[in-house]
Structures are given as structure tokens and as C-alpha cells.
Design a protein around this nucleic acid. Structure first.
Lengths: 206, 206
DNA sequence: CAAGATACTTGTCATTGTCTAGATTATATG
DNA sequence: CATATAATCTAGACAATGACAAGTATCTTG
């Protein structure tokens, strides 16, 4: 199918993918401000103007990278969730998946949830973000299926905010900067436990 | 005291302050990626190389702007907290102040809690961030003074994460993008109420 | 095989951060 | 007060960047 290029063919063949992949690495290495189109092109072994045929602008490439990020985040949450036996365990597990993804790809995560990627609004980006969001909704509904809709919505806000806030503060060094990785994980799990307890109570009280 | 410059004196007089002030406006206008030193210089009516005498690099200026941001955030939280009658009300009020500040200065807030400002580590930046953090500690301790230290610490994590996560998701458009400002504020308050209830319960149970 | 579309290169432009050298003003020392 | 010295600013230069234009090579389709 795809022939192995002997020397250097004029057509790259999979330049779009190569740019996304190189860009992702570059992003983690140098941060958002250090991200450049030309360096992506260099790493893909093409000229500096080649990317223009696949991405309208640097923001377009960033949006694509962010989109992939949302897809991976969703997959990471789902993978953890599958191991959970109860709805409450699933909510915790998704939180663990969420945090683990963010910790593994801190700059990508910041790109996804910063305002930079959204400057170039792609339908794919919105859809990918939506499906990650949907996982939170499903997990919370599993825990409090009989609660009124408004309570459910508020608890989705609450669950997501706790998870997202905690890992964001950790990544920025505001929380647990002096803790061992082990201790930090315990802090995260304690946070998730408190969150789930709140959700359970909100559904089971009345 | 400070004479009003008739035409254009060679020395600006307060260039450092002018750069910080101009930079802050520029930041909100164009986002982090659109922030440039030369535009700051232009807005302060000096040459492009003038800022170098006050800031070692563009990251240094960004760090200074972030530092001011933390100081203002602290002040905003304290101002709200002063109106609160009970410890629980204070915890909520500080959360309101936190969110209001973030909503009023979204890009500055993103700078403060992104990884960009921290690339250039200033002692002032760390101190300013610390004192904002300290307010959360004090507020939580007020609500559950008799709880064990570890519970307190976990609840500080929890409270801060909830507040920070919620407003971050709002700013990014992930939460409440279709709500009216009024409805969104209600969602925020509901979130804070759920958070405070959890903190109270964590302290009063045993 | 021809013709046109696609993928890529080279060259260019204004703009950027940072550096060096020089000009101007403030301050301190005698 | 005079003058040396430091602080502040300007002007010019450099490599790097994002974007655009124009040309070249390869693929595809008729």
C-alpha cells in the first residue's frame, strides 16, 4: 500500500499526520509560546511553507492538536471507567483517568482548556469537547438516577469543576509542589472521594 | 512633585509602571499569544528597546503582570470576605470574589494560572501566589476549626479546586456558554453552596 | 498520453525578541 | 558649582517567525 520512500520523495504522503504528531511533541517540549509552525515543518522534514496546504494557519494546527487531545482524554476516561463496578466507582475512575491524562500531557491539556485553541473554531473541536463532557453527565446520572434534572446538572458542574480544578492547580504547581508523587495521588483520591460523597448526598437526601 | 512633561522628555519617568499597565490592557485585548514587548513599548511611547532596562525579557514582564494579578485577586477575595457574617459565609464570599475577579480579567487569570508566567520565576510572584492561597486556608479553618490537620488540608484542596475549576471551565466556554449571566451566576452559587456543605460536614461529623 | 489538480519548494515581506553602540539626562562626588 | 558616573532611553542590526506569491514536481483523471 504505502510504499517505503527510498530516498526523499517530493510528496511526503502523510504530512498532515506528521505535522500533528511533531507539533504535539514540540508543544510539550517548549510550551505554547514556544510552539512554531516552522519548527513543526522542520521536524517533518519539509519546507517552511508546506504546512499551509494542510492548515490555514498556526491556530488551525493548534485546534487540530487540541481536538485529538479531547479524543484521547475521552478514551482515557472510558478506559478507567470500564474497570469500575459501581456507578460511584465509575465517577471516581473517570476522575482518575482525567487527572492521569492531564498529568501525562500537561501542555496539551493547557492548550485544550486555554483560550488559544478556541480562537480557531473547528466543528471537530467542539464535538470532541462535547463528547468528553458527555462522559461526566453519564457518570453523574449513574450515581443519582432519580434526582431532579436540575440537581443532576448542578452535580455535573460540581464533579467536573472539582476534578478539573484540582489537576489544574497541581499542574501549575499551586498544589502539592512539595509532595511526593505518591502523596499527591493520595490527595487527589481524597478529593475525588469528597466529591463523590457530595454527589451521592445530593441525590439521596430528599 | 511629578512635573507634567510639556513636550516629550527623554526620560519617561515611570516607564516600568507604564509598561505593566499597557501590557495588561494588551493582554486582555489580544490574548497571551498576541502579547508583544514592542507593542507595549509603542503604547508607552518609547522605543522598542527601552523595556529592556526594566525587564530582562518578555517573560519577566509577564511575570510582573501576573504578580500584580495575584495581589488584586487577594484584594478582591478579602473585600468580599469582609461582608460575611459567619465563617461559612466567608468561604462562599471568597469564592464569589475569586470568580468575579477571574470573570473580569479572563486572560490575566489564564496567565496567572497557566505555565507561561512561571517560566520566569520571581520571588515576588511566588509570594503573591502564596498569599492568595493563604486566604483559602484561613477561610476553611474558620469553618472547621476543630478538625484534624489532615482533614483541613484536604478540604482546602477541595474548596479551592471546586472554585478554581468552575470558573476556569466557565471562562473557557465549557460550562454555561448558553446561559444568561444571571443563570450562570446562580450555577456558580449552587456550586459554592454544595462545596461549603461538604466542608462543614467533613468537620462536624466525627 | 495529455491536462489539470495536488503537494511541495523557494523567495519575499513585515514583525518579533534580543543584542550592541551611542545619545541624553539624572545623580552623586569632589 | 563642576564634572564624573550611573541610569535611562534611542537607533540599528540580527536571526527567527507567520503568511503570502510564484514556481516546480508528482499524482489523478479523462
Amino acid at each position: 500500500m504505502t510504499r517505503a520512500p527510498s530516498s526523499k520523495p517530493y510528496h511526503h504522503g502523510e504530512l498532515r499526520e506528521a505535522l500533528v504528531s511533531a507539533g504535539r511533541k514540540l508543544l510539550e517540549e517548549r510550551g505554547i509560546r514556544g510552539f512554531t509552525l516552522r519548527e513543526c515543518a522542520r521536524r517533518a522534514s519539509v519546507s517552511h511553507a508546506a504546512p499551509a496546504h494542510h492548515f490555514a494557519s498556526i491556530d488551525d494546527l493548534l485546534a487540530e492538536i487540541a481536538t485529538r487531545g479531547y479524543q484521547e482524554l475521552t478514551a482515557a476516561m472510558e478506559a478507567e471507567a470500564r474497570r469500575a463496578a459501581t456507578p460511584a466507582a465509575r465517577l471516581v475512575a473517570q476522575g482518575v483517568g482525567y487527572m492521569a491524562f492531564a498529568a501525562a500531557h500537561p501542555v496539551l491539556f493547557q492548550l485544550m482548556f486555554g483560550r488559544e485553541a478556541n480562537r480557531f473554531e473547528t466543528p471537530g473541536l467542539a464535538a470532541a469537547a462535547k463528547s468528553a463532557y458527555h462522559l461526566h453527565v453519564v457518570a453523574v446520572e449513574g450515581v443519582i438516577p432519580k434526582a431532579p434534572l436540575e440537581v443532576k446538572q448542578r452535580m455535573v458542574d460540581f464533579a467536573w469543576a472539582s476534578i478539573h480544578g484540582f489537576i489544574t492547580l497541581v499542574l501549575e504547581g499551586q498544589i502539592g509542589d512539595e509532595d511526593s508523587p505518591r502523596a499527591l495521588k493520595a490527595r487527589g483520591l481524597a478529593m475525588l472521594a469528597a466529591m463523590v460523597e457530595t454527589v451521592v448526598r445530593a441525590g439521596g437526601d430528599p
